[in-house]
Computed example of a mutant assay.
Amino acid sequence: MKVLVPVKRVLDYNVKPRVKADGTGVDLANVKMSMNPFDEIAVEEAIRLKDKGVTEIVAVSIGEAKCQETLRTALAMGADRAILVQTDDKVEPLGVAKLLKAIVEAEQPQLIILGKQAIDDDNNQTGQMLAGLLGVGQATFASKVELAADSVTVTREVDGGSETDKLSLPAIITTDLRLNEPRYASLPNIMKAKSKPLDQKTPADYGVDVAPRLTTLKVVEPPKRTAGVKVADTDELVAKLKAMGVAK
C-alpha cells in the first residue's frame, strides 16, 4: 500500500511574521523556514501506518528549490522517497490540488494524508479540492486513523464533539493537531535521507497551469491591542457593550 503525503515549506511557527515595507506581502528574507506543523503530523501518521500494511511513503512538495530541505526532513522522519514540483511562482490551493491530482494519477497511492491547513495562509482548502477533483472520499480534521485492507476508519473533530467515518480506499485524510506527536529525526536518519530518491519536476511536466487567479492588493499588520478598562458594575458593562455595538 502506497501513501502520498504533501508537505509545505512555511515560515517557522516560532518566528513572528513581518510585513514588507511596501505592503506587498510577508517578509521571508533571512528568516527560519520549516515544514508546516500539520504536514509534520501527516508524515508521522503515515510512518505509524507502516505497521498496518503501508509499504511506501512518498512525500511531495510544490515550490521553490529550497523546498528540498522540507522534503529531506520528511525523508529523515521516515518517508521512502520524495517528489519536488519546482516553481518560483506562488501556487494557490486550486493549483496545488490540480498538481496533486496529476501526481496521484501517476503514482496511484491508496491513501493521501495531508495537513488540514498551512499556517501561512490558513486556507484549509487543498484537501477538499483534491477530493473533489479525484472524486474520492475524504475525512477532514482527523484525530484518529485506523487502516484496514480496503478501507480506513477516521475519527474526526466536529463542533459537537467527534464523528467516526469509514471510507473506501483510495481516500483523502487531513490531519488535526490531536492526531499524534511528530517524531524528531535522528542524526543517522538525517544522513540516510541525503541518499534517498528525490525527483524534481515542474508544473509543465504534469500539464498543469498554476497561474494565480487572485491578486493581493495590500498586506497590513493587525491593529495593536488596546488596554482594557475596569467597570464598576454590570450596568456599566452592558452600557459599554451597547456603545461598541456588541450588545443590544
Rank of each mutant, 00 (worst) to 15 (best):
A247N: 08
N30T: 01
K101W: 13
L75P: 08
E107N: 06
L167Q: 07
K230H: 13
T126I: 08
E221H: 12
N189Y: 07
D159G: 08
G115E: 10
Q86N: 07
L237Y: 10
Q108Y: 03
G132E: 10
S195E: 14
V208D: 11
L111Q: 02
K90R: 15
K32G: 07
N30R: 14
G127T: 01
S34A: 15
M77F: 03
V229W: 00
K16V: 15
T126E: 08
P182G: 07
A29M: 10
T126N: 04
E69S: 00
D51V: 03
L111K: 12
M1V: 01
P188D: 10
A149W: 02
D176Y: 13
V246Y: 08
M1E: 04
L217E: 14
D80F: 03
S34V: 02
A232L: 05
A131Y: 09
L167S: 12
N14T: 15
K166H: 08
D235W: 01
V10G: 11
D88V: 00
V154F: 02
P203N: 07
I190C: 10
T24R: 13
I103T: 13
A185D: 03
V19I: 15
T24D: 07
D233P: 00
L198T: 05
V60R: 03
R225E: 14
G132M: 12
L134Q: 10
G137W: 06
Y206W: 08
P37R: 04
E221Y: 12
N189G: 02
E64D: 15
P93D: 09
V26Y: 01
E105S: 02
L241I: 03
A148G: 14
L130T: 09
A29S: 14
V208F: 07
V5L: 10
A65D: 06
A148N: 14
Y184D: 00
A118I: 00
D89T: 08
N189V: 00
K116Q: 13
V231W: 01
Q125E: 14
T55G: 14
P170C: 00
E157S: 06
G63S: 06
R9A: 05
T153Y: 05
Q138C: 03
N14C: 04
T234H: 12
V238E: 14
K66L: 06
A243I: 01
L99V: 12
G207T: 10
V96P: 08
R213V: 14
V54E: 12
L177E: 13
L217T: 09
F141R: 09
K90Y: 14
V58W: 03
A118T: 14
L187A: 15
S195C: 00
M33L: 15
D121I: 02
D159Q: 10
S151K: 15
G115M: 01
G115F: 10
D51T: 15
G53W: 05
D165H: 12
A243G: 06
I62G: 05
V58C: 09
V229A: 10
V238S: 08
R178Q: 14
P182R: 06
V60G: 01
T55D: 12
N180K: 04
L4T: 09
E92W: 01
V154L: 03
L11N: 07
D235I: 01
R225N: 07
A149G: 12
R9T: 07
A243F: 02
A232P: 00
R81M: 01
A21H: 08
K242A: 04
F141K: 08
V152C: 04
K16Y: 11
D88R: 08
